[in-house]
Amino acid sequence: MKKGTLRQILLLTDGCSNQGEDPAATAALAFEQGIAVNVIGILDHDESEESHGLTEVEEIALSGGGVSQLVYSEALSQTVQMVTKQAMNETLQGFVNQELKQILGKDQSLEDIEPEKRGEIVEVVEELGETTDLEVLILLDTSASMHHKLQMVKAALIDLSISLNARTGKNRFAIYSFPGKRKNIQKVLDWTPKLDSISSVFPKITSGGITPTGPALREAIYQFGKKSLLRSFRHGDEPGLEETGY
């Protein structure tokens, strides 16, 4: 069986985009390309979960085929890893459901199977979640209001790397921040299997004013594309990223 690579963009933000295209539309584009967009909205303590500036968080994830969550920065670590894993499982569950429909008929889903018999199917999803390769591009909002939250973000990302590296499957992470200097996004850390090294790169982040979430997402999609393009150059006619494994 060939194992593919799951691709995710993890957007960490604390507010509303205010420049460029609609991020929800861009997220839909990412989903089209097989990249799930997860969004974590970081709340300030005077903000409630109903804060309307953050409804965008839900919309982006919805059209990006990912998971969204609003959270206060103290609970960030657990949330980041939970959202990532949940999104992985949902994507995998989606694949398995499609397969099931082919076997059982198009109106059948896991819900129609007796709970006692779901076990084996769910076990397959679990197994895939454990062994599949994963690429996460972390897109970090560094507009002014995020400044005092960056320390928590750093801890949460290191924690994410601990969680995911406990899996059998391979992981690769990259971190980009937005807005960048005269660009939409700024590379913070290139693709790497571990995030332990971010302690040294994190102070590089400078906080600016605008929040161009849409354009930043578009750039992020491009970063995924560029990478597989480079790879296909390097490996000549070897099978691409989708067919790593066995």
């Binding site: 670590s77 924690d159 601990i162 969680s163």
Partner: peptide, 23 residues
Amino acid sequence: GRAIKEYTEFYDRGYWGLGSRRA
């Protein structure tokens, strides 16, 4: 051998930086 499915930070050696989250 798999990754720990569910944990609570206070009891988690990964959180304390004293080990991995591998089962």
